[in-house]
Design a protein around this nucleic acid. Structure first.
Length: 320
DNA sequence: AAGTAGGGACTAAGAGGGGT
DNA sequence: ACCCCTCTTAGTCCCTACTT
């Protein structure tokens, strides 16, 4: 289960934060203060390991990789998530950072968010990849980014009832230009020559039509039931009532959109991609909306350098 | 089983804007 | 007015997921 606290000190050293909250719209802009260094990385890596632990155990069991450090198997180079290609790491990175920001910063509504576990075990493609790689090292098949599955955090009241959850959509792009932003948020342009329009199948479309009770809650409950049924008994029971077909318990939803990646060449410091203090007009869902923009340099290297060293200390040949 | 849509990375060429 | 850099767009590639 996910147990490591967010590395707040390292985040403050790494990123400058500008936040605003107006009515039910929150915006958090994060800009790189300095390149990621060994100290920051050392604080962040345990959080990533914690976030991936459940899926790692799942997939390694599936692939029948031993989890014991003394076993020679652990040194194999086809572990989750280390063995995944960059394109997949980017998707995972966005979701882990969504969780880290949710726990580390104040979001719209000032709720106390809880992440019992990340839902990565439902990323079947990654599991299949790890399994295959263990049996056919020649295999080079690329895993694409995660699709559809959301990052989920919950708010639990004093009686152990789930009263609210936040569901996140994380997008990574190498450079955030105006056209890149439009394509991500509104979908690609289609139509006849000279008459192109956005097809309106971007993030706004997905967020606006998102279910009030998404599959992620069901997946979260299933994992809790599988791993810690007694510790999370009240949450499991509460989710049961929320997920019921008939007379379900009410639950509030907060939408989270994370845009992460590199700045455009012409970007001025402290400028945001989406409006800062006014709710974007494309947002129609009427719920609470939290936008996070994370602008960093050399994103590919940052992501790779983190994912390269996850669980490295467990490898017998890694040294310390 | 085959065709089509979809998403993301990459590339080249043309458009546009800013600086001098 | 000109040059150069950046952005935009269109096209390609690769692979998945959905449809028929």
């Amino acid at each position: 289960m996910h147990s490591v606290r967010p590395p707040k000190k390292a985040l403050l050293k790494w990123l400058d934060d500008y936040s605003s909250e107006v009515d039910n719209y929150g915006h958090l802009l994060l800009e790189q203060l300095q390149a990621i260094d060994d100290e920051i990385k050392a604080s962040i890596v345990p959080y990533f390991e914690s976030a991936h632990l459940d899926a790692r155990e799942c997939f390694h069991r599936l692939a029948r990789i031993s989890l014991h450090p003394d076993d020679g198997d652990i040194g194999c180079d086809c572990q989750y998530p280390n063995a995944l290609p960059l394109i997949t790491r980017k998707g995972l990175f966005g979701e882990v950072m969504s969780g880290m920001f949710t726990e580390a910063y104040e979001f719209v509504g000032k709720h106390e968010w809880l992440i019992p576990v990340f839902l990565f075990r439902n990323h079947e493609d990654a599991g299949q990849y790890i399994y295959t790689l263990n049996r056919d090292p020649e295999r080079k098949r690329e895993v694409l980014g995660r699709k559809g599955d959301d990052f989920i955090a919950i708010v639990v009241d004093k009686d152990g009832k789930v009263v609210r959850f936040i569901a996140g959509e994380a997008k990574w792009r190498g450079t955030w230009n105006a056209s890149t932003l439009a394509t991500v948020m509104l979908g690609p342009k289609i139509g006849p020559e000279g008459d192109k329009v956005y097809n309106n199948r971007g993030v706004w479309f997905e967020v606006n039509r998102a279910l009030n009770v998404p599959l992620g809650l069901e997946q979260l409950q299933a994992i809790l039931l599988d791993r810690e049924p007694s510790k999370f008994a009240s949450i499991i029971a509460s989710l049961d009532r929320i997920l019921a077909h008939r007379n379900p318990d009410p639950v509030e939803r907060t939408d989270l959109i994370l845009l992460a990646g590199g700045a455009s060449k012409k970007r001025k410091p402290q400028t945001s991609l989406l409006p800062w203090k006014t709710i974007p007009e494309e947002y129609k869902a009427g719920r609470d909306l939290q936008v996070v923009e994370m602008i960093i340099e050399d994103g590919d290297e940052v992501i790779n350098s983190i994912y390269d060293v996850l669980w490295a200390k467990d490898k017998p040949d890694a040294g310390i």
